[in-house]
C-alpha cells in the first residue's frame, strides 16, 4: 500500500446558511504534487481551500492530510488566506517571532524576512505596512512554517510585479522542497507552467481535473492580464 495521499477529500461540502459554496468534491492529491485551482469568482475556490486546510470545518464529507484528519494535522499545513492575520500594533519581526514560538516553526525569522524583501521594514509596526507588504509578511510566515502541505489563496493578489516574481520563486522553492501545493488563482496561464495538475471549479463542483499541460485554451485565454482581480 503506497503512502496515503497528501490531501484526500471524499464528497466534501460546505454550506453557508442556505447556499452550498462547495458540494460533492472528491479529490486525491499525492504527496509533492502541485495543483492549481481555477474558476470564475464565486465558484468556491476560497471555500474549498479553507476547508482542505482545516481553517473551516466541512458541513459534509471529510478531509484527510497524509492519512490523518486535517484538524489534527494542522502542524503540517500552511494557509495563505486573503486575511493576513497580523497584529497591527506589533512589528513585522514581532509577528513572525510570535508565530515561530507559538507554532514551533523551524524557519529563521531574519531569513524569511530577507526572502520576502521586508528586512528593511522589519521593525516598523504592521499598521504602517502597505497591502503588498502585509502580503509579503504573510508569505514570510508561510515560509517560516516549512509545512508539508501548502495552500495559497490567490497569492498574486495585491502584489506589484516584483511581488509576482517573488511568488513564482516561492512556488519553485516549494517544488524543490517537495511540498504538496494547492494554488487558487486567476493567473491561469502563468501558474499552469509551474504546477502539475489543474482543477477547474464551477459553482462549487469540480468541472475538470487535467494535467497542467492540457489546461483548456479557453481557460488560458480567460486569464486576466494584470494581478488577480
Amino acid at each position: 500500500m503506497d503512502a496515503p495521499a497528501a490531501i484526500a477529500a471524499r464528497d466534501l461540502g460546505r454550506r453557508f446558511a442556505g447556499r452550498w459554496a462547495v458540494r460533492g468534491v472528491t479529490l486525491e492529491i499525492p504527496a509533492s504534487q502541485m495543483v492549481m485551482i481555477h474558476g470564475p469568482n464565486g465558484s468556491g475556490k476560497t471555500t474549498l481551500l479553507r476547508v482542505l486546510s482545516s481553517a473551516i470545518s466541512p458541513s459534509q464529507g471529510e478531509v484527510r492530510v497524509h492519512g490523518v484528519p486535517a484538524v489534527e494535522a494542522r502542524r503540517r499545513i500552511a494557509l495563505l488566506s486573503h486575511a493576513d492575520g497580523h497584529y497591527d500594533e506589533l512589528s513585522g519581526r514581532d509577528n513572525l517571532a510570535l508565530a515561530k514560538e507559538l507554532g514551533k516553526m523551524p524557519g529563521s525569522v531574519d531569513g524569511v524576512l530577507d526572502a520576502v524583501g521586508l528586512a528593511s521594514r522589519a521593525d516598523d509596526p504592521v499598521r504602517a505596512y502597505s497591502a503588498g507588504m502585509r502580503k509579503r509578511l504573510a508569505f514570510a510566515r508561510l515560509l517560516l512554517k516549512e509545512a508539508d502541505v501548502v495552500c495559497l489563496d490567490e497569492p498574486y493578489a495585491a502584489l506589484d510585479p516584483e511581488g509576482h516574481a517573488l511568488v513564482d520563486d516561492v512556488l519553485r522553492q516549494l517544488r524543490a522542497r517537495g511540498a504538496t501545493v494547492l494554488v487558487s488563482t486567476h493567473q491561469v496561464r502563468r501558474v499552469a507552467g509551474l504546477v502539475d495538475h489543474a482543477i477547474r471549479l464551477e459553482n462549487g463542483h469540480v468541472a475538470a481535473q487535467v494535467p497542467a499541460a492540457q489546461v483548456s485554451p479557453a481557460a488560458l485565454a480567460a486569464a486576466p492580464a494584470g494581478g488577480d482581480a
Binding site: R74, A78, H82, A83, D84, H86, D88, M105
Partner: peptide, 17 residues
Amino acid sequence: RVETEHGALEALLLFPV
C-alpha cells in the same frame, strides 16, 4: 477586535495554538 479584524485568530488556530 484585534483578533478578528485581520484574521489573526484563525491564523493562531492554524499554527496550531
